[in-house]
Amino acid sequence: MATTLNEHIVTSYEDELTNLNKIISEMGGMVEQAITEGASALLKLDHQQAQDVRQFDKRIDEIQQRINDAAVSIIARRQPMAADLRMVVTAIQVANDLERTGDMAKQLAKRALQIESLNLAPKFYNGVKHMKDLVARQLQAALDAYLTRDSKAAIDVCSRDDEVDAIYNSLFRELLTYMMEDPRNITQCTHLLFCAKSLERVGDHATNIAEAAYYLETGRHLGADEQQRQPR
């Protein structure tokens, strides 16, 4: 199926679909910003920034509502078919994943507020910082794949999720080692472990968005297609 679609005969319908894509793009930008700032608040223990991220989450929730309303309105008034139907359905899914990703950013900010009084050694941070960079790239790539309807890029995002998991596991072991070295590290390291878990979830949401991108373009499910491709 072609990636670029012809225009609708009804211009206002075309505009509504374009607008839906635009709001998702906007929401994606907001969520990327939230993750970056949430992580930054955590790494710099910036109290104000952490508060800002928590406030920002309300706006993310609002924009998700806007996407859902727009999608429901298109279904009710236009009865979308085929590629249009997939676009509207995946818009709802992607908005949901983005909203959850926004929640993860809020979690990071909350942790920042909790650990700001604790004296953290910089070495504890390195793994979390590395992981944040990786999942932020994953999220961006997944959104790009969705907005440009690029199923190949979507497959790449999904195949890189193993990297995120591997980093999470090694970070888990690393933090465990610090805790065993000195029990006074336990509180800080446990907080960071939760942060790592949140970032790992962001990676999962990025994968979901990439899967939606694949379905949007091909009309098939990536999981099922991958199974068929693998030799028995």
Binding site: H8, I9, V10, P80, A82, L85, T218
Partner: peptide, 19 residues
Amino acid sequence: MFTNPGNVKTQDYITGRFG
């Protein structure tokens, strides 16, 4: 046919696009 048509012409027709 209505979720994932195989032909571009089918898709254009059922979604109301210019063929």
